[in-house]
Simulated assay, not measured.
Amino acid sequence: MDDVGADGQVPPARFVTTGPERDEVSDAWMLAVVDEAKAHGQERLHAWLMSDAALHALSAPDRHDSAPRPTGASAVAVAWFEPVAAALVRTLDGRQCEAHVESAAMLGLPRWSPGTAPPDIRTWAVRLHPMGLALHDPTGQSFARGVTDVAPVWTTTAIDQGRVLAVYGVGPQPVDGRAVTHPTDRLTSAQDAAAIAAAWVPFVY
């Protein structure tokens, strides 16, 4: 039975993130699973402004004993592309992986582990489109796409800073009809579970 947190959500399963070198059969299988999952619906898109203090807390080795570090901006633009459901697969060496985030890592979007800062990556990008945002991978194709009303202040911030914190992966799911908490809180749970990939990427509009 799933453990339910105080916020009424089921934390995502913790996935194994280390192991032997990749094998082409497992990688091909994961990509096929993700393609099939994406055929049944787009990702949920969460676009919001995160304070510098909250971002630093997510990146600090000790979240409970670390002072916010000023960065020169009061907030940063975050775009979280969240698959509607986890897609679990097992590799040839017996590891269980979440196929969505594993496929992103295969293409160069690294997992975001607790106590680490997201890297700057120029080969991925977030693009603004009339209905929301799209996450483009190094091939130039749309890796993830979400529909939402993007707030003008979010777009202005992304344009001014020239980059976006792009996040991809499945977060904790609500249960019993309880309301979903703020994306930053869900992001913390997903990061603890090694269930997301993230990086600073260029913003294209």
Rank of each mutant, 00 (worst) to 15 (best):
S59Q: 15
A79I: 01
S26A: 08
S189T: 14
P114S: 06
L49C: 06
L31R: 15
P110N: 05
T181A: 09
A47S: 07
T91N: 04
L88P: 11
V84Y: 10
P183R: 15
I121Y: 06
P110E: 00
P12V: 03
E43N: 02
D3V: 14
H56C: 05
A75D: 07
T91C: 09
L55R: 13
M1E: 05
D192G: 04
P68W: 03
T184V: 15
T181H: 11
V76M: 08
V89E: 01
G108Q: 11
L109S: 01
L55Y: 08
P174L: 04
P202K: 14
H64C: 00
E98R: 15
D120V: 15
V170P: 09
T71Y: 04
Q42N: 11
A73I: 12
L107T: 05
R63V: 15
I121S: 08
F203D: 04
Q141L: 09
D149L: 09
I159H: 07
V153G: 01
A190T: 09
A13Y: 00
R111E: 04
A53G: 09
V84N: 07
A53S: 13
A75K: 07
A6P: 05
L135R: 02
P118M: 13
A86E: 14
A39H: 12
G94A: 13
L49S: 06
A86P: 09
S51V: 08
A197C: 14
V101M: 06
A125N: 01
V89Y: 01
T17M: 07
A190V: 11
A85D: 12
H40I: 07
